[in-house]
Design a binder for these strands. Structure first.
Lengths: 332, 332
DNA sequence: CAGGGCAATTGGAGCGATTCAAGGAGCCGT
DNA sequence: ACGGCTCCTTGAATCGCTCCAATTGCCCTG
């Protein structure tokens, strides 16, 4: 493989000059610069990132850790981040954790091994020590889709507000029986949504007479949503169900339809995320929209800023959710 | 950051011994090994992967390049590969190309910079020179979901056979008017599916009187499928449409339903991939199933074998597709 | 008991970049 | 003509690790 020395020899300059052309082009005389550039071109030179990082150069490796890339919500995040990062010539590495804390720490561990210069993470239950270790090797961290602790940048949705929005909407529409399907025990996001949901109900005139049937499911996907259908109890009055995300809502809705339960007459459903798909289903979903694109973009901007500017001040950005009413809820 | 030397000092051994504990544990005396292990633990030592790679050690970095991770088909591939690779302590980095040749080469370029030791790629149009350059730096490559050229390992579905299967099925069911929706001009996979589809029709007794209306769409997603609905011409006889993948099929189907077109009475649809979701829709999809899990697993196994064994013989594995008949096609 | 063989350990020479301090060349004003 | 500048350019030291060749004991055997 051709290295910096080969380039230097062909261009008849010193190794450092070649390095300068790559990292501080402005201090190299135009003629020399061009000569070096040509030499690189001729030789098909590609700098060795490992050597670069080892020598203490600016790393160009950022890791993105998400629950599940095939969930369109995360898909959109990844796409946004990749687009922006590739333009800045960063190398983006995505890892899925399946919201599993063990895989999450494995993923972080591997990122540490790589001495990633930045990490964008959607934690399920982020162990503080993992963050500490990342910090110690100088890796910048931005927490995405979860409230950040102090001393760390974070970009999140106000999940409590989102849950509230859904609860309020159900109450407005006259529902009196409620359920939540998701993974509140395993992910902070769902827990907050559930909390907001409960809060809205409790604050209503009917007060604490309103109870929420909580159905904890194993994953955040369609299959889990389907499974929840069997456990959902609905007798006389229609049940209003808030789902932890749209995929779960889809699964639940499909399974209910198969059993002859009609949405929204028998069961009302509110999803979460507003992924593209749910707007196109035969019964378009009422859901809580997250400004995914903006979140992702902001998160990357914060990360880049933090990587470039050592004096950077941490900030926690909170986005507001928005309720999108479609056909899976109806006025009673 | 703590390095190998710190560990060596604490354990009162030489640097090399620490290295040996990590890479060739069997040649270190058990007592010594334990002492080193303890020291690592105490110091919270994490080997620096960059240094390792630079020193010519066995790299543990593999790249996975796919069209779109949020497509469940690729999602499943990624999940499978990640599971297996993480167990082997490989670092998996996923990149999306959106089937765009430019992003594809950018992705490969970055992988070269990283000196990845292995790459699993789903090419749209893989430029031969990119492969060559990867090869030159010693990166092992396995092509996934596309026919491999000689001198390279590949795992693929027999897409032509898949297209044939669909065509045959439509003929059996009595359809006489056909269309294909997908990206045949931009991806080899869709092109092969279309070719097989055409072949089946041409080989039928009705011969070449059967024409296929080809609708090229910009992406392989739901939105593109929806757009295709406007361009699909169907007059008297029902049209049988083969879609390049299930997402396109879903989009097409949703859009048609909105305009009052009934599936399968007015338009029959056959998807491709058999992603989980399509089985649960209100009208479950007829589709061509790909053994994704096996493909992904086989691809990774090949890659690992190739990375470990320099004498490795390239092979091209071809999986057979399978038709799954559900409710979007009906006997005429 | 010398010598051979084996197991365990280790210092040193890179790997390919970066950064820094120092050196050389040309130009200016005096 | 010369000191003092600015601009460019460069050799050397370094990063943390792996591998190799060499070394050290130790046990066994003839």
């Amino acid at each position: 493989m051709v290295n910096i020395e080969d380039v230097a020899r062909l261009a008849a300059v010193g190794r450092s000059t070649v390095s300068n052309v790559m990292n501080r082009p402005h201090i190299v005389a135009p003629a020399t610069r061009q000569r070096v550039l040509d030499a690189m071109e001729n030789l098909g030179f590609v700098p060795n990132e490992s050597a670069r990082v080892l020598a203490g150069g600016p790393g160009r490796f950022v890791g993105v850790v998400v629950h599940d890339a095939s969930n369109p919500f995360f898909g959109e995040i990844i796409r946004t981040v990749e687009d922006a990062a590739l333009n800045l010539r960063y190398i983006v590495s995505t890892t899925n954790t399946g919201a599993d804390p063990v895989r999450e720490s494995t993923a972080v561990e591997l990122l540490i091994q790589q001495r990633a210069s930045g990490v964008l993470i959607t934690p399920s239950a982020l162990p503080a020590d993992a963050l500490g270790r990342l910090r110690r090797i100088g890796t910048k961290v931005v927490v995405l889709d979860a409230p950040g602790e102090s001393g760390i940048c974070s970009v999140a949705m106000d999940d409590t507000a989102g849950g509230r929005l859904a609860g309020q909407h159900f109450l407005d529409y006259g529902y009196r029986s409620f359920a939540f399907v998701g993974t509140p025990a395993r992910t902070t996001q769902h827990a907050a949504r559930l909390a907001g949901f409960r809060a809205a109900l409790e604050e209503s005139p009917l007060g604490r007479r309103l109870d929420v049937q909580v159905i904890e499911v194993p994953h955040e996907d369609i299959i889990s949503g389907r499974q929840a259908a069997e456990r959902l109890q609905h007798r006389d009055s229609p049940v209003a169900v808030l789902c932890g995300n749209d995929l779960i809502a889809m699964g639940l809705s499909f399974a209910l339809q198969e059993r002859g339960t009609v949405v929204p007459q028998d069961v009302a459903i509110c999803g979460y995320d507003d992924i593209d798909m749910v707007r196109y289903l035969s019964v378009p979903f009422t859901t809580v929209r997250q400004p995914v694109h903006d979140m992702a973009r902001t998160a990357l901007d914060l990360l880049v800023e933090e990587m470039r500017d050592p004096e950077h001040e941490h900030q926690a950005v909170l986005f507001a959710p928005e309720l999108v009413v479609r056909a899976t809820t109806a006025r009673q």
